[in-house]
Write a protein that binds this DNA or RNA. Structure first.
Lengths: 246, 246
DNA sequence: GGGGAGACTTGATGCATATCAAGCGTGGCG
DNA sequence: CGCCACGCTTGATATGCATCAAGTCTCCCC
């Protein structure tokens, strides 16, 4: 299942001293509770850029919290088309869709050299029985993913290409910002084609969208470096106020 | 929150003798466990056709299991466009997206006169602590919704209009079939416009899709009555084998 | 540091679906 | 039972994005 490399590197594991503890599963747990959660994480894994953390059909052993780096998750249709279902940055959980049938429903690829905290799921469920707030966090995590997916459906069903791109950039900006990174300058770790798949567009359309946003003075994107010049302008675009046609 | 009517009718509540018990939250629970779950459902609600069971922003009090009838859930964008996020038939759960922030993230409308079992969420979480299999079921329910949404993203991102319509009909057919209804003959409870919103298409495109499927001898749809003539043909269409263009 | 493959950009063209429009069917209510 | 509003169907046209194509950039590996 894990293609990282062998032997897997052993790392000091502890949610207690993790930089993303306040965004991750332990959210709102007491110190003593976090320590019990720590016992589930035997050791962290490193995943090389391009490698798969798990693949569609793999049995669910663990959920994975991204600690460092970033991932994309994608499914492949019968006729071989890839659909990217999400991008994941530190503090976000991977593998939630596997709980439904105890098998992973998508494949998770590292977009750069990354590091995850595997959380053995059976043990997590067991621990959650005695830690109500842990259970509550897991429920919220799952529910939040549903809400996120619904807003993606709204995006796919009702937005034009420029609006989708703006929404994507804003979303990424917000998530990075809440992790202490700049909301206005960041680096895209994924290719244009992957952004396109995520947004239901072709890579050429992403390029043109980037050019449009540039021409409007909203953002500047050179290669993978993003600089947002007009955050409010972007937000207006997403709320559909700027619609000329459609 | 509840627009049903007053006074709300009091109905005999018991998962134990509900016809959809084997598709609903109690799945896999023992008789004694189901009886404890029964205690959470104080009384069932009836919801009139067109009425809202809950609305976006309502505080989360209960999840709702559909017992009789059907619902659509939808969100409205800033500029007033509706996006239907799902259709729900007996045995399916409503309100899962509210767990994330203790507020409903969408509005649920009854597509016909319907009946739901409200399950008080705080009590459900509490009960789940002492019933591991109940907790596991809830986790699975949430995860299944995520998987379902991901397949909708695939549909929106990679399928043409006829394929989307075929996928929609097949999905409905399967869900009705697993509830003991005919998989080949059923009635659509929603308007063309609602199907279109759900599939990211306009109502006219749904009409044309229906005509295309009819011309190929796959299904016959008169008004809202569906008769599937060639189930395998439909499935082939969804897997993308019939693609001429695209 | 140089070569090459993969990623990105931009232009020209075509097509699938949206939009606009007009008429028909139907079911719900008085 | 009949009327009317709403839902459905089908046609004509417009348009936004996909597709095809060609060239540039960049970064990774030797």
């Amino acid at each position: 299942m894990l293609e990282a490399h062998s032997p897997p590197p052993i790392l000091k594991t502890a949610c207690s001293n993790c930089s993303v503890v306040e965004l991750c599963l332990p959210l709102g747990l007491t110190g003593a509770e976090v320590e019990r959660l720590d016992t589930l994480i035997v050791q962290r894994y490193k995943v090389k850029k391009g490698a798969a953390l798990y693949r569609t059909g793999d049995p669910l052993r663990s959920l994975y919290a991204v600690r460092i780096g970033s991932f994309k998750t994608s499914v492949v249709s019968v006729d071989g088309r890839e659909q990217v279902t999400g991008f994941h940055i530190p503090g976000e959980m991977l593998g939630l869709d596997a709980i439904s049938i105890d098998q992973h429903a998508c494949t998770a690829y590292a977009l750069e050299d990354s590091e995850v905290c595997p959380i053995h799921f059976a043990q997590l469920e067991k621990l959650a029985q005695s830690l109500p707030s842990l259970q509550h966090n897991l429920n919220k995590l799952l529910s939040r993913e549903i809400v996120r997916d619904h807003s993606m459906l709204m995006l796919m069903g009702n937005m034009n290409s420029d609006e989708r791109l703006a929404a994507f950039l804003l979303n990424l900006s917000q998530r990075l910002s809440s992790r202490g990174y700049s909301s206005k300058e960041f680096v895209l770790k994924m290719r244009r084609e992957e952004i396109g798949s995520y947004l239901g567009l072709r890579l050429e359309t992403i390029c043109r969208g980037i050019a449009h946003l540039r021409d409007q003075g909203l953002v500047e994107i050179t290669a993978r470096d993003v600089r947002i010049h007009n955050m409010d302008g972007l937000k207006q675009m997403v709320s559909g106020c700027n619609r000329q046609s459609h």
